[in-house]
Amino acid sequence: MPLISQVGRNHFKVRFLLGAITTLLWIGVSLHLFPVWWTFSTSITPYKEIYKIPPALFPRGATLACYKLIFTMFSGSVTITQPFWVYIKNSGIMTGAIMAIQIPVTALAAYALSKLHDPKWSRLLFLVLVGIALVPYQVSMIPLYFLLRDFPFATGYVPKIPFTPIPFPHYNFINTYWAVILPGGYAAFNLLLFKGFFDGIPDELINAARIDGASEIGIFRRIIIPLSKPVFAVVAYMTFSSSWNQFLWPLIVLKKEKLMPIAVGLYRFQEEVNELANVIVPSDEGLLKRMAQGYSWNGVMAMSLIQSIPVFIMFIIFREQLMKGIKLRGFK
């Protein structure tokens, strides 16, 4: 409580100010929570109520039918042919793999730049590793697509072995998880975060361990990692949410429905339901049957909430680390 001093807190004017701030913040919180409540209430509304005007604030005859979409398949949908757990699983695999590769790779490189390299090399490598972030992703997107299609050739065509009509051996990563995982193997922004933190750790600590005979990897594992928990928490959260939310790249490289992440699946689901809402014919038997399965906006809302749950959980874990991080920050 830094701005308003502890001493004067009982003073009437100060109390009034604090009360005003608290009220303002709670009003803001309720403004935030209302959409979430609305989403949830839509998701448990029975499909017959959903297209009623005006919609009810508290749904009558609440049902969890829409959440069954996780396990059941649609009948008669063209674009969504998998139950939702498939998309969730895909997202989980890709996000897990990206985190497992990206965090150690980036942290080790940042540590090497911060503590191990000569200043000359450190500066040069810093330019190579961080400079990439200056250029928008779109510039390299087309060659990256080619690269993953005919790895390791990125020019859009595979050259032939001289004097033969046979193309050079190449490997196609498109329509595999690797097409999403490999470009996420390293992140320049996270390197900045790590390096900023590692720079604050005193060199004496590392030298002392070195004199005691610790190996370099041992120093990193036993001294640096325990000291850097907050920054690892921040990076883990950012990596998680950015790969969980990835949309454009999977949309380009994953054309098989069985491999799509939940962001893409949700998008396709929503597009189809949106079309439906414009041509609604309540008497159509088949349509009503599909709507009963959750094939309408309440299903979309239910799946949106499902997509948000992992982000929410990660956020809570991350917040605890952030609050603990205060003590460790005294270092700098």
């Binding site: 790779v105 080790l108 730049l113 590793l129 990439i132 390299s140 470009p183 390293y186 990193f220």
Partner: peptide
């Protein structure tokens, strides 16, 4: 320590 990051940044960053 810096090789894996260099591999990724060159192959999937600078090259494309």
């Amino acid at each position: 320590f810096s090789l894996p990051a260099l591999f990724f940044v060159i192959v999937f960053g600078w090259y494309p």
